[in-house]
Simulated scan of single mutants.
Amino acid sequence: MRRDPLVLPLLALLLVAGCTAAQGEPTPTGSGEPRATATKSHPKPRRQPYTISFAGDVHFEGVLRTRLDGDPRTALGPIASVLRKSDLTALNLETAITTGGTPAPGKQFTFRAPPTAFAALKAAGVDVVTMANNHGMDYMEPGLKDTLAAIRKSRFPVVGIGKDEAEAYRPFRTTVKGNRVAVIGATQVLDSQFIQSWTATRDKGGLASAKNEPRLVQAVRQARKASDTVIVFLHWGTELVKCPTPAQRSLAATLVDAGADVVVGSHAHILLGGGYSGQAYVQYGLGNFAFYNWGPDTGTTGVLTLQINGRKVLKDQWTPARISGGVPIPVTGAGRQQALSAFRALRGCTGLAAAPDA
């Protein structure tokens, strides 16, 4: 059968076009966009265990203020070498960041520090702080404005405080060795006359309050959806009381049920016990850390370091220290074992276990 003389050239063109498309070259589509070419899929990085350290209350009042004038790497003293070893470090910054403002009326103790505090903390190996505590707004609304401005300028990660409720309860998020970590800050301790004025709302700046328990639970549940590890850092407890209060134990259980893997906190000025609640780790009181007030009990401190993989807390370690000159000095020699035994004994009144559930 005779072929049309135009058929062979047409077939050749079709073969060329087919080969070109098969090789992944872009060809026009109906939308005018090139057709997507095949790409290799990259596997999600595998999680590996990471370490996170926690420390208690820090301000820069009294003997500590001058430490901000020197090398920021030495502001927290020799304990910084412990903080820097961890993949992540968090503590409670118990002060307003302002050089102005008016002290909160009726408060016996008010704390404030200049913005250089953030540089000192960063240089000491601290990665994130919570400012949700009963001193975070010691210089009232003007002090809050200065604090938020200093946070923005320094770009230092801070939780538990914000221009509104959404910002105050928003977690700090980071990825460490493949683990998506979320850290939330909130305070269960507020002077009664300031509960309303210091608590962040939809249209007012302030602190994340654990007294608004449903809102804190909501923050934990939201963080759980997109995190491998959810951590809540609280300001809680009763000053100089060595055992957790019923309010602390109730809140810890509620937060663990909501999805928190680690719940830690401070406020009592002394150490409280810690341990496991099921698979979660709870620490009821980290004590003073860099603080102008120290004595036999209030000067006993240290660093809690957890090794975590996803939701599993694999190991807990306590580095004991004593406050001297306002800063923590790691305990060495014969006193170290005694300090470790004393810390472990604090677990006795917590209802927590020495190891996670099998």
Rank of each mutant, 00 (worst) to 15 (best):
Y284I: 00
E94W: 01
E167C: 07
M1Y: 11
A339C: 11
T130W: 12
D357C: 08
I195T: 13
A55P: 05
T37Q: 12
S41W: 06
R112C: 08
Y139I: 00
T98M: 09
R215E: 12
T199E: 10
V217I: 15
T305D: 04
V217T: 14
V58F: 04
S86I: 00
V176P: 01
T98W: 15
P78A: 00
A223G: 06
L11F: 07
I52L: 05
L190K: 06
P171T: 09
T39C: 07
W236M: 03
G143N: 07
G302A: 03
F60R: 10
G278I: 02
P296E: 11
Q188G: 13
M1Q: 15
L352I: 04
N288F: 11
E94M: 02
W318C: 02
A345I: 10
V232S: 03
H59T: 06
P330Y: 07
A342S: 15
V303F: 00
T298Q: 14
T29C: 07
W318P: 00
L314F: 10
G205N: 13
L15N: 03
P49G: 06
L304W: 03
E33H: 13
E213S: 08
V217S: 12
K204W: 01
N134S: 11
F54K: 01
T319A: 07
G56C: 05
P142V: 07
Q307R: 15
S250T: 09
A208C: 12
A210K: 04
C349Y: 05
T174E: 12
K163M: 11
L15F: 13
N133S: 02
I97R: 11
G125I: 01
N288W: 08
L216T: 08
R224P: 00
R170G: 09
T99V: 13
L64T: 08
A354P: 05
L251K: 01
H267A: 13
G273E: 03
G30Y: 06
A223N: 06
P28C: 00
T130I: 10
S277F: 13
D357G: 14
V63W: 04
V126A: 02
D228H: 10
V129F: 00
T37Y: 04
L255R: 08
T20N: 07
P330M: 00
A12Q: 01
Q317M: 03
S277C: 00
L346M: 10
R180L: 02
P26G: 08
K211P: 05
A280K: 03
Y292P: 14
L352N: 06
T229R: 05
Q48W: 04
K315T: 08
H59C: 02
K204C: 05
I97V: 15
T74C: 02
E61V: 10
N212K: 10
Y292D: 15
Y169S: 11
G100D: 12
L216N: 09
G326K: 08
G143P: 06
F156Y: 05
L346I: 11
E33N: 13
P142L: 06
A321L: 05
T39I: 13
D138V: 04
A117W: 06
A120E: 10
T229D: 02
V232Y: 01
K153W: 02
L14N: 08
Q188M: 15
A358K: 11
P26Y: 03
S53Y: 09
K85H: 05
P5C: 04
